[in-house]
């Protein structure tokens, strides 16, 4: 590209995520194949697919944790593997505290980690602490700041990780099956929080096994099973046969695939 025009540049910068012809496989057989899509600023995208469909792998590719075999992934206009401007990317995985069960660390300390990329090798300032505290208020658990993170319920813990992303001033929130192990009542409140954040301008990319939740809450559905089966409006998705094709014919149409 020679002499990029200014409007082209702005165009590219507004692609928060840009996946181009990406294929990847751990062994000879591809886990994801020839996938392309972009996520624009302010979108709320839900990614669904059956178990082993490669949706978590695709997420890892987007985050730069894997190098694609073919194609390119750009995050915030930079190659994903360059890990540039990462304070703008918030990441919430399945409840990771399982592995670090006994590690003594408070909620406030975890949320403050969101400020670490800003602080670099310098000291954490009182401004950093204020922002962390503010983020805790936003997700509604500032009264738990001095609790050990292991003492929180699954739903509270996921809120803490979102607070960490907010403290980091993230523009993109990437969630990998965040509601696994979270009780039903908290799940609803959790999705309400995501909707609020999206209303405030946060771009959200959500991988979720609960199809109903994705159709209900997101504004765009990406359905994949190794390849891309559907990309578009939740209503159009419900009307299409993409679900049957992606999941195979005998899919359990459980919890309310019908959109209200």
């Amino acid at each position: 590209m020679t002499q990029p025009q200014s409007n082209v540049r702005r165009d590219r910068a507004d692609h928060i995520v840009d996946v181009k012809d990406v294929s990847f496989g751990y062994t000879a057989s591809p886990v994801v194949e020839d996938i392309s899509f972009t996520v624009e600023r302010g979108e709320y995208v839900g990614m669904i697919g059956p178990n082993g469909s490669g949706k978590s792998t695709l997420l890892r590719l987007i985050l730069g944790l894997h190098e694609p075999d073919e194609g390119q992934v750009e995050l915030l206009g930079h190659p994903a593997r360059a890990f540039a401007e990462r304070e703008k990317v918030g990441y919430v995985a399945q409840d990771v505290t399982e592995n670090t069960k006994r590690m003594p660390i408070t909620v406030a300390e975890v949320v403050l980690m969101g400020r670490f990329p800003h602080a670099g090798f310098g000291r954490v300032t009182s401004d950093d602490r204020d922002r962390a505290r503010q983020a805790l208020r936003t997700v509604g658990i500032d009264h738990l700041a001095d609790r050990k993170i292991t003492q929180l319920s699954g739903g509270q813990r996921q809120r803490a990780y979102i607070a960490r992303a907010l403290a980091s001033e993230a523009e993109l929130l990437v969630l990998d099956e965040p509601t696994v192990g979270v009780d039903a009542e908290s799940v609803d409140a959790f999705f309400d929080l995501l909707t609020d954040l999206n209303d405030d301008g946060m771009t959200i990319l959500l991988v979720e096994h609960d199809i109903g939740a994705v159709l209900e809450h997101t504004s765009r559905v990406i359905c994949l099973n190794r390849e891309l089966y559907f990309d578009g409006d939740p209503v159009a998705f419900a009307d299409s046969d993409a679900l049957d094709r992606a999941y195979g014919t005998n899919v359990r149409r459980d919890d309310g695939v019908v959109v209200s």
Binding site: L63, G64, E85, Y91, A93, V110, M113, F116, P117, V124
Partner: peptide
């Protein structure tokens, strides 16, 4: 200290955060 703490607590999140 900050980097070591982040990596100790959650290696994947630390990588995503660019450490």
């Amino acid at each position: 200290y900050k980097q070591l703490l982040y990596v100790t607590f959650d290696e994947t999140a630390a990588r995503v955060a660019g450490l």
